[in-house]
């Protein structure tokens, strides 16, 4: 079975108020033909909050790549790049 690309969207408070709320609708912006190749999940962002050089919120992780100050456009581009569609 083919492994899906995991897109992890932070739903923590800080990420949510700094633009993460928009990212909830990311599935509506991803081309249909690649939608079944990805797995969109939520996460809490405690992993990043306590570090000095933490990435700026909102944070999305596409595969192993962390996207700071994530926007829908940035995330869609990163997904396409990860799937070799760019």
């Amino acid at each position: 079975m083919e492994r899906k690309l995991v897109v992890k969207i932070c739903t923590g408070t800080l990420c949510y108020v700094t633009g993460g709320a928009e990212l909830q609708s990311i599935d509506e912006h991803i081309p249909e033909h690649i939608l079944d190749q990805i797995d969109i999940i939520g996460s809490t962002c405690a992993d990043h909050e306590e570090t000095e050089d933490r990435p700026q919120p909102p944070i999305v992780k596409v595969g192993d790549v962390i996207i700071p100050e994530a926007t829908i456009e940035k995330v869609v581009t990163a997904i396409k790049a990860a799937l070799g569609e760019a």
Partner: peptide, 14 residues
């Protein structure tokens, strides 16, 4: 985490 947009506009529940 249940990735579902809520009518309250709050972050999702889990």
């Amino acid at each position: 985490i249940i990735m579902k947009r809520d009518s309250s506009g709050l972050p999702p529940i889990s």
